[in-house]
Simulated scan of single mutants.
Amino acid sequence: MQTVVLVGTDHNFQRPVNGPHTEGIAQFRIQIQELCLQYHLAAIAEEMSVYALAEHNITESVAQQVCALLGLRHQFSDPSSREERYKLGIRQDNDIRAEHLCSDSTQEQIEADVLARGSVPSDRIREQFWLRKVQEFDVWPLLFICGANHFTSFAALLKASGINVVEAHPDWEPTANRGCCES
């Protein structure tokens, strides 16, 4: 059976760096390991890319580290570059604002355009992309890590595609820092 154990979180916990999230990252790593063992998972896929890691001067994600430790397969499921996102029609809010730099649009017009073409339509495109990547990967059961803002809609998309979904954490946060971070 195709099963996805789904975890939503703040992307800061997916990237192993020193700084204000160090303790949370350690807790996240433990949580991911525990889920892998509890559900006998074969792989981890995540809303992340080599491109996104490189933007933070990082070469591997927490999920990759867990996969190496447990002997699991890993997949980056997000588009691999800004160019690929553009070709897919995925627009980040700041990308839309940047398109208006040389226009005579008012701030209200720009923000209306951001709302019309911004994150919600782009999120649905991205989630469809992740679904295709996971289906092509075809390793089950797997853990999927995404931003908490995608949890509900991506769970619904997976279910609509006939995939069994275990909703493990809609918005995982470290216990010591509850409420400190946004997704």
Rank of each mutant, 00 (worst) to 15 (best):
H100Q: 10
A176V: 08
R29G: 04
E34T: 15
L41A: 08
Q31P: 03
S103W: 08
I125Y: 00
E182H: 15
I44V: 04
R126V: 07
S105Q: 11
R132S: 12
E167P: 00
I96S: 09
P121Q: 01
C181S: 08
D78V: 00
V166M: 12
Q64I: 10
A43K: 07
I110F: 12
H150V: 01
C102V: 14
G162P: 07
D123I: 00
V134D: 05
G147Q: 07
S183C: 04
G179F: 15
I96F: 09
I30R: 02
S183R: 02
P170S: 15
E46L: 11
A68K: 10
A112H: 03
Q128T: 04
E108V: 09
R73W: 04
H150P: 07
E182W: 15
L157G: 00
V5S: 03
F144T: 06
D93R: 13
S77L: 05
L72R: 04
V5C: 14
E46K: 10
E127K: 01
W172R: 09
V114E: 13
H169E: 12
I90F: 03
G89Q: 12
Y86L: 01
Y39F: 12
D104K: 11
C102Q: 15
H56N: 10
E23M: 06
E173G: 05
E46W: 09
A26L: 13
L157S: 03
F13Q: 06
W130I: 00
L69H: 14
Q14C: 14
G147N: 06
L6R: 06
Q65K: 00
S183T: 01
N12K: 13
E127L: 02
E182I: 14
Q31D: 09
R97P: 10
L35P: 05
L142S: 13
N149P: 05
A26M: 11
C36V: 07
L158R: 01
Q135M: 13
C102T: 15
I44Y: 00
I44M: 04
P20T: 10
E34M: 15
C181A: 08
V17F: 05
V4C: 02
A155V: 11
S49C: 07
F129K: 02
G162I: 14
G19P: 08
S81V: 01
F154S: 00
S183V: 02
I25C: 13
